[in-house]
């Protein structure tokens, strides 16, 4: 009796999981179709697969946009780590007074809508002639991800056993040694989680990229929308582009689910 019920629930769970995943699977399937097959009124599950959609991506210069995305994500993530690790260290291992105020400030900047800063950024960038510049965009992404990174980093750092740090201090380790050879190796998995999440947020970002870049520095998300041209059929090529754009993050997320949860809950969930 009990096992039948369990089987039923398991079956239902599987049906729900597969249905929930379906739009992603459909995108993947559509990316291997010809435009005619993709636009069929009766959804086609059996068809002759083609790489036509993918080869059209190359013609449209998708590699350049992917490169831009990669650069913006890597540069901003590196910058975020550089700023966040010392700051989080100051907030956890060597707490200063008003830790809560500092934390509150950082998290509140994340609440601040992009609307608050986009206009001046646009105009300042324009005047400095760095509109449509991948480094300028990276700076914005770093500012966007910094609060989250500090929060996550702080929670990872606060897990470092105090005895370890005390011991290194008694051994006369100065601050640099303490940070580099005692603390950082312990929190390396945490740093990887923070880096992954910052990378994902930058890779997927749309709003700033649409507004602050055009021909040279445009990243992948705004490029996707360019396949929608109103006339003609575009679902196959759009699906191919979306698959290529989404795949890196999907794979990274699949393999790092645990770190993702810890990081995204910003350490509030153990």
């Amino acid at each position: 009796m009990k096992s039948t019920k369990a089987t039923l629930i398991t079956g239902a769970t599987w049906i729900i999981a597969v249905t929930y995943f379906f739009p992603v699977a459909w995108m993947f399937i559509n990316s291997f179709k010809t435009e005619n097959d993709a636009a069929s009124l009766t959804p086609k599950f059996i068809f002759t697969p083609t790489l036509e959609g993918f080869s059209r991506l190359a013609d449209r210069g998708m590699v350049d946009y992917l490169t831009n995305s990669l650069m913006a994500s890597v540069i901003s993530t590196a910058l975020v780590l550089l700023l966040a690790i010392p700051a989080a260290y100051a907030l956890s291992v060597r707490p200063i007074v008003k830790v809560q105020d500092a934390l509150f400030f950082f998290i509140s900047t994340r609440f601040m809508p992009a609307a608050a800063s986009i206009l001046p950024l646009f105009i300042i960038f324009k005047n400095l002639r760095v509109l449509d510049n991948i480094f300028a965009l990276s700076l914005v992404y770093a500012a966007m991800n910094l609060p989250i990174a500090i929060w996550m980093m702080r929670s990872f750092l606060s897990e470092v056993p105090h005895e370890v740090i005390e011991a290194s201090r008694i051994d006369g380790a100065n601050f640099e040694t303490e940070l580099w050879s005692v603390v950082l190796p312990i929190v390396l998995p945490g740093i990887a989680a923070v880096a992954l999440i910052c990378f994902i947020f930058s890779w997927n970002e749309y709003f700033f990229s649409v507004l602050l870049t055009s021909a040279n520095a445009k990243t992948t998300p705004p490029f996707l929308a360019s396949f929608v041209d109103g006339r003609g059929q575009f679902l196959a090529v759009l699906s191919a582009a979306s698959t290529v754009a989404a795949l890196p993050v999907i794979l990274a997320g699949w393999f790092a689910q645990k770190q993702l949860v810890r990081g995204l809950a910003m350490g509030a969930v153990k």
Partner: peptide
Amino acid sequence: LIITPFLIMPAASALIWKFSMFDTNI
């Protein structure tokens, strides 16, 4: 399978839903 939609690029999700899920014809 279930966490994947959260990982997908939001711009891609919006386009895929608009044109392959919600579309009136296909």
